[in-house]
Design a protein around this nucleic acid. Structure first.
Lengths: 198, 198
DNA sequence: GCGGACTCTGCGGATATCCACAATAGCCGC
DNA sequence: GCGGCTATTGTGGATATCCGCAGAGTCCGC
């Protein structure tokens, strides 16, 4: 889960980086090509990506683009020997976490990777919560959904009844179903849940 | 307000950029040094900053750092003739909006500046709303504040009364004062206001 | 000292919300 | 057709919230 994925077509570099990180107790998996990693990647793949730019076949940048297109949000640190400002600027603006030129400082790189791994772990935790929320939302019927939206908008039951053209009693029923399905007790809790408050 | 500030010690470049942007109806102010802009800058200075890296005296990077330290959140686009990856990476990671190497494409630069100006305008609008909110929050007494926090946390009046060791009636009084001062009618609206929901 | 805040409390009533019990009706799948 | 899900509504009562009226104590500045 909290693994560092190293994608580099140079076996010597993979090995060297592998040793470096394993010596710091960072779990590492090496990939000999962008294609190999892309194929193995799954939406639930966690950790952090250390990506060489220049490789045989698919470049690191293209891999990054494809991963983004697939919804990957793993932190990516680019590693490159031939610095190029526009490329670096572009990668960072697309959301890469870092862009490091070789030769690099071992300790610095390890620190950044560890920070990235921690960031990813936190992010995944947040998303797990969101997923549970989405699952609960999915159990709502359309009507319940409508009522919920109005409740969260701060409307009173009578107003909701009016806007939906149904009786207050019916609104109450839907409302209580929403509370039950969303596992909250008050409208405020529901609002916090949906607006993602602390 | 929605002005482009160009900081460059080369008068020829300032003039050229000035012409370019004025021809696109972008209001421009030129500054001959980082020091000059830093002195003129105020927290309510709006717009966008086009910043040369290498200058006599204070460099663009140092100006950026000082502005950040003073809480400036204006979008900053760096302009540089001598690309250097670590510098670019660093600037972007600190929050610079862009990092452009000379020679640049006129149209592209204008587009980016216009986007940055729009972003700044939106950001300022949001912050203006936040300021109004902060002003209203400031009118609350400590007790009202405590009650509000618990209301927004989803607690019922009776629970709040219990936690604060006061009667329910008193909680009701504070609660209604909070609603009045914050200009809302329901706990849900208050929650949305404080958690910054749509 | 007196007026003005902030805090605290009680009473009673108008509203609003929560909920169990009960019932009708359409739609869908087995 | 029967059972299950959804949507609808009603009655009636328990809780909770909203609010006006009334009073009381503290602290602070003029």
């Amino acid at each position: 889960m909290t693994t560092l994925h190293i994608v580099d077509d140079d076996e010597a570099i993979r090995d060297a980086l592998g040793w470096l990180f394993q010596s710091r107790n960072v779990p590492v998996v090496g990939w000999a090509s962008a294609e190999a990693f892309l194929e193995a990647w799954r939406p639930d793949t966690g950790g952090c990506l250390l990506l060489d730019i220049r490789m045989e076949g698919m470049s690191g940048l293209e891999l990054f683009d494809r991963l983004l297109a697939r919804g990957c949000r793993m932190p990516v640190i680019f590693l490159t020997g031939h610095g190029d400002v526009p490329i670096a600027v572009n990668a960072l603006k697309k959301g890469a976490r870092d862009f490091v030129e070789k030769p690099f400082n071992d300790n610095e790189l390890v620190d950044r990777v560890i920070q990235a791994l921690a960031f990813d772990a936190e992010q995944r935790e947040r998303e797990a919560g969101q997923a549970g929320l989405a699952a609960r939302l999915a159990t709502l019927t359309q009507r319940e959904r409508q009522v919920m939206d109005l409740v969260v908008a701060g409307r009173l039951n009578k107003v909701i009844a009016d806007e939906l053209g149904i009786s207050m009693r019916t609104v109450e029923v839907h409302r209580s179903h929403v509370f039950e399905k969303m596992r909250v007790k008050t409208a405020v809790e529901l609002t916090r849940l949906l607006t993602g408050a602390a």
